[in-house]
């Protein structure tokens, strides 16, 4: 019995990480209906960026990853803003093909440049023992400190993003261009700038997710597509346009994978995919849909 409780708890915590992967994508989906097929590769790029920054900063290992994450956030925002403003804005339209092909091309470029720079070896960000520390709960159950921390950050980010979306001026701009771009333009919003802001913020989330992912486990240049699929599944399971939904979607995916892995290691990822497909069949709008 403890074994199963352990599995569920691990799954929930894993789901927190998946939710962090997904929130950036959820924001981009929600604001401009853009499918960024390089999303997972940008998470991996962020992880490698943090890895290099940790080496460059030279702080003690307990502090270095957090300093690296802090340094990465403005860079990520700039990259996201620039990418949207100067590349992706030009691919948006009724036809999804250009944006899909361009982001897919970016994915291939990122994967292969990372492979060239860092080789195919898996790397991990040194965090001074945080990745193996644990917190005991109950008699014979303990959870990892870092996964717990990641889950806490995921919840905080979901709350923060939902607040940003619902209660702030920039969130109002996001909702306005999402609902009716032309009407928003008439009200004085520059949709190119608003889109670029959305991608910039999404990339901040990507940088947080990537650094934490690199601290928790090993990353290698070819990992991106798998993360893209998890993120996508979490968004669709949770329902479009709600960050709490995305958090719930990530947790459902994490728990499903954990249960699958426990039954048979070969079927863990498979179980997650199948639950997603079943969701499409029986509840295609997701659990907590807000927008269409």
């Amino acid at each position: 019995m403890t074994g199963w409780i352990d599995t569920i708890v691990q799954g929930v915590l894993l789901g927190g990480l998946y939710a962090l992967f997904a929130m950036g994508q959820s924001l981009i989906f929600g604001v401009m209906r853009l499918t960024n097929t390089a999303h997972g590769d940008f998470i991996i790029l962020a992880a490698f960026g943090a890895f290099s920054l940790v080496l460059a900063i030279g702080l003690p290992p307990a502090a270095a990853p957090w300093a690296a994450m802090g340094a990465l956030l403005p860079i990520a925002f700039g990259v996201g803003y620039g990418l949207q403003r100067f590349v992706l804005n030009g691919t948006l339209g009724k036809d999804p093909l250009p944006s899909l092909v361009v982001t897919f091309g970016l994915a291939i470029v990122i994967q292969n440049v990372l492979q060239e720079v860092y080789s195919a070896d898996p790397r991990s960000i040194e965090s001074g023992g945080l990745n193996i520390a644990s917190v005991p709960i109950g008699a014979d159950l303990a959870v990892g400190t870092l996964p717990l921390l990641i889950f806490g950050i995921a919840v905080a980010m979901a709350v923060a993003m939902q607040w940003l979306f619902d209660r702030t001026a920039i969130g109002r701009a996001f909702r306005a261009v999402s609902d009716d771009r032309d009407a928003a333009e008439l009200m004085g919003l520059d949709h190119r700038h608003v889109y670029a802001l959305a991608t910039g913020i999404a990339f901040v989330l990507v940088a947080i997710a990537g650094t934490l992912h690199g601290m928790k486990t090993t990353v290698s240049p070819a990992d991106g597509p798998a993360l893209l699929l998890y993120a996508f599944e979490a968004v669709i399971i949770g329902g479009m346009g709600s960050f709490y939904g995305t958090l719930a979607g990530g947790i459902i995916l994490g728990v499903t994978q954990a249960i699958g892995f426990r039954i048979d290691p070969g079927w863990g990822i498979w179980a997650g995919h199948v639950v997603f497909l079943a969701m499409l069949l029986f509840r295609p709008s997701g659990l907590f849909p807000k927008t269409r």
Binding site: V87, G90, P98, V101, V102, F104, L106, I108, V109, V113
Partner: peptide, 12 residues
């Protein structure tokens, strides 16, 4: 990398 870049440039 070249193939990816070429696809991006051609598409845009």
């Amino acid at each position: 990398v070249g193939l990816g870049l070429l696809a991006i440039v051609v598409t845009i």
